[in-house]
Design a protein around this nucleic acid. Structure first.
Length: 415
RNA sequence: GUGGGCGUGGCCUAGUUGGUUAGGGCACCUGGUUGUGGCCCAGGAGGUCGUGGGUUCAAGUCCCAUCGCCCACCCCA
């Protein structure tokens, strides 16, 4: 085999697209209930946009981006940066005080692929811009929870607050002191992480590190009054909506722009790629990118991960995608079938035929495999009378119908 | 970037201590009386055994290299 897709890039074959459709359709429906509007964004942006928003020192920006260096442009590794760029560029903030936006599409990161992680992957992103009210934090999480629940998935919600520029630096220093005192016992990665991003040590999966981190200071005890109030109110909002969650003081974010509320919906069924939806607040980011001071919060859902989970649950059999299969016997009949098929399609029916005019038995088999609900058989006998034999594939009943009036035929197969 | 595993027709796979035309299942095609599906039966098409070297009288089966894929770490959705 010579030509193949690139490593980490996958075709979604016809057998899988119904599941993707179901996911997208339900997501659009739930987002609509929460009065989110769709925004569609380009895949290429200036490299600088991502460096400034995600953080120049993050792994994503340092080594995982698909960049055309000579042009200084990059294929987006996530959607929030692009969305905020569009928000600022088009002055959406003057149109209404609070914007609720979602976008669905491919993202690109040059990582080593593994289960639930591709180089081209797809996310559904939802963002609320223009309100710092903890109520919208709860609302956004409720929306994620509703979608996941209606997909039939069992996930748990974990919540934390990362503080803000007022309180986080102090916590970070305290944490650093603590870690330095125990660094002999930390894993190699964490000794390195201590200096690049000490908060990351908190969610190291190494058992030894986990044990140490148990005794580390908690961000939740070091929030400034404003962040503390906000955090409490977020929890109150979740409680009001009946959203179950658990506090996780070890959960941090990989991207630089997050502050205050952070959350993840976690599954136990996907190996190490356990987060199917993650997000948080980023109150300083719009301003950082040159827009007005605007609070914001959002989440991203990994669609491949959701599809993997959906595939693990029992799937109902594929429904009929064909209303009518027209089986013609002989060239003359096939000619008639061809034009009849087109007229029925114009009238809205889903119709197919065998272009090669195989045996009737073969055509019946094809109709069966296509889950056609009806087969219309046209042979010499029917030709003479301008009729067709209409067979209901589920009841096996047949009746001769006139071809003179397509309306009647349509009614027959619509029943 | 670092580990581990695996590469046999479209898909899943059997292939003994290297030995005659590489088997099977699914899917596909054609039939099983004259114009009829889902079951069953028969027949058929489809494979340079990832690739390139090497050892050998002989390699899918051993050795080396190379490419590819998967899983895990890292990171993240």
């Amino acid at each position: 085999m010579k030509l193949k897709a690139l490593n980490g890039f996958k075709d979604t074959l016809p057998g899988e697209t119904p599941l993707w459709r179901r996911l997208e359709d339900l997501a659009r429906d739930v987002f609509a209930r929460f009065t989110f509007s769709e925004i569609r964004l380009p895949i290429l942006e200036k490299t600088d946009l991502f460096a400034r928003s995600i953080g120049a020192a993050t792994d994503i920006v340092e080594k995982e981006m698909y960049t055309f260096p000579e042009k200084q442009i990059t294929m987006r590794p996530e959607a929030t940066a692009s969305l905020l760029r569009a928000y600022i560029e088009h002055g959406l903030y003057v149109q209404k005080p609070v914007q609720r936006l979602f976008t669905i599409g491919p993202m690109f990161r040059h990582e080593r692929p593994q289960q639930g992680r591709l180089r081209q992957f797809h996310q559904m992103d939802a963002e609320i811009l223009g309100s710092a009210n903890p109520r919208v934090d709860a609302e956004l999480m409720a929306m994620g929870a509703m979608l996941l629940s209606e997909l039939g998935l069992t996930v748990s919600l974990e919540l934390n607050s990362l503080g803000c520029p007022v309180c986080r630096p102090g916590f970070r220093e305290g944490l650093l002191v603590f870690l330095a005192s125990r660094q002999e016992a930390l894993c190699d990665d964490c000794r390195r992480r201590m200096h690049t991003n000490p908060l990351r040590v908190l969610d190291c999966k190494n058992p030894a590190c986990r044990g140490i981190v148990e005794d580390a200071p908690s961000i939740q005890d070091h929030l400034c009054p404003d962040c503390r109030t906000h955090f409490v109110a977020v929890q109150d909002g979740l409680d009001q909506l009946g959203i179950v969650y658990s506090l996780n003081r070890f959960m941090v974010r990989g991207l630089d722009y997050y502050c205050r509320t952070t959350f993840e919906f976690i599954t136990a069924d996907l190996g190490s790629q356990s987060a199917v939806c993650a997000g948080g607040r980023y109150d300083g980011l719009v301003e950082e990118l040159g827009g007005p001071k605007t609070p914001g919060i959002g989440f991203a859902m990994g669609m491949e991960r959701l599809v993997l989970l959906l595939q693990k649950q029992q799937q109902p059999a594929a429904g009929a995608e064909v209303d009518l299969f027209i089986a013609g016997l002989g060239e003359a009949a096939s000619r008639l079938c061809f034009s009849l098929m087109h007229r029925l399609r114009q009238a809205g029916a889903r119709v197919m035929m065998d272009p090669d005019g195989r045996s009737l038995k073969s055509q019946m088999k094809q109709a069966d495999k296509a889950f056609a609900r009806f087969v219309l058989i046209l042979g010499d006998a029917e030709l003479e009378r301008n009729t067709g034999m209409l067979r209901d594939m589920t009841t096996q009943e047949q009746q001769e119908v006139s071809l003179g009036d397509t309306r009647m035929l349509l009614d027959a197969i619509a029943a």
